[in-house]
């Protein structure tokens, strides 16, 4: 699998570390339902068969976290963008 790193270009997936679902947002820890929200954030996943937005870390390259749009049934990659905008 070749990940199109926005910095480095297409690179073999073995240069990257995988984390998982990139649609999750860290909840407000001060919210009254923080327990439930963190339970969902840390543990529950949509786990779709199809389009998946996911985090890959280019550990053997630019060290950027890259959000990759990939299909979990075909492994086809539709695109990739850097985390955190243009830092």
């Amino acid at each position: 699998m070749r990940i199109p790193c926005p910095y480095c270009g297409a690179r073999d997936a073995s240069e990257f570390a995988y984390l998982g679902d990139a649609t999750l947002t860290r909840p407000d820890p001060a919210a009254p339902d923080a327990d439930e929200a963190f339970h969902a954030y840390v543990y529950l996943r949509d786990n779709p068969a199809g389009a998946h937005s996911e985090w890959w870390y280019h550990s053997a390259g630019c060290r950027r976290w890259v959000k990759v749009a990939r299909d979990t049934t075909s492994h086809a990659i539709a695109g990739a963008e850097l985390a955190g905008g243009a830092r």
Binding site: M1, A13, S14, D21, N47, H52, E54, T72, T73, S74
Partner: peptide, 13 residues
């Protein structure tokens, strides 16, 4: 392999 997949096949690494 280490990434979400339903494809029943893996990769060379």
């Amino acid at each position: 392999d280490g990434y979400n997949s339903y494809a029943q096949r893996g990769n060379l690494p």
